[in-house]
Amino acid sequence: MEKTAQAGEAFLDIKDLVVEYHTDDAVIHAVNGVNLKLAKGETLGLVGETGAGKTSIARSILRILPDPPAKIMKGEIWFNGENILKLPEKKVRSIRGDKISMIFQDPMTALNPIETVGSQISEAIRLHNSISRADANKQAVQMLETVGIPGKRFTNYPLEFSGGMKQRVVIAMALACKPELLLADEPTTALDVTIQAQVLEMMRDLQKDFGASVILITHDLGIVAEMCEKVAIIYAGEVVEYGTAEDIFDHRAHPYTEGLFGSIPTIHTKTKRLNPIRGMMPDPANLPSCCRFAGRCPYTTDECTSSYPEMVECKSQPHTVRCVRARVKEGGSQ
């Protein structure tokens, strides 16, 4: 019954996801009650600093978190009307790499160094299609050419490729089965700027061709502006602001988001020093029970340090923000 109820809703719906890492001496709260929705064909950017829990969210969707130590404690991830977290392993395996696939952060280590790139791509194809090895290889060659690598390099090993080429191979592998949802975990972080632009452009083209939805994890707001329709700002394992890219860029409401934008130097004004957000993210093993940004926020009030802020809806839908100031602001303007 729930299945049909969900079917009409979002294509991907993450509800109250909680991920913890259990180590010998601490419990690290990596993801704390994240809610996210994604429509078909849409691109969602997950933005946040290192350790904010972005990758844990993405890996939860594929259920490839390293267990132990990672545990999904709570939550639901609805994909195409099925709760991925409740599916048997075998079913999830048939989704991985087929319906949902992932592009990894570091192309240098994401490929198996002792298998040819071609066999690694055709492995993904053969896992999800019952076709012969020869046909799978043919498709893999096509995939390589789609991402701009000559098909004759099918039999080369990863060490014979440059970083940018390896990332193309990783992307080819992720797109090999024409996924409906692509999780791109900082796909360009390990690449230099010119290659970044190429890879992003290629991803955008491929997304258009394949019609996939994309979750793009990054800490580069420039990439977000270029690629994403929706943006979720992640801080200390929770969504602090969510909205369309326009809302986030032009009407940002959370002080953390402000800080992120404030730290980007602009070309028009002369900046001697960069303007970072002061302080550090709270220790994820020991999170405050109040607003998690209170320690670094320039507008902190007593309310911020005494109570936990709820998500507040802003004027322009679907813009939400987790900040008491926004409530006051929005409340005042209504």
């Binding site: 490839i64 395996r93 990894f104 490929l111 002792i114 993904a124 592998m173």
Partner: peptide, 27 residues
């Protein structure tokens, strides 16, 4: 088994036995 390519293999939907014996053990 802590290497990234092992996660990649899992993310492809490869069965655990092949991930361990096919990818990790060979390396």
């Amino acid at each position: 088994i802590r290497q990234d390519y092992v996660v990649t293999a899992r993310a492809k939907g490869q069965i655990e036995g092949k991930v361990i014996y096919g990818h990790a053990l060979k390396n």
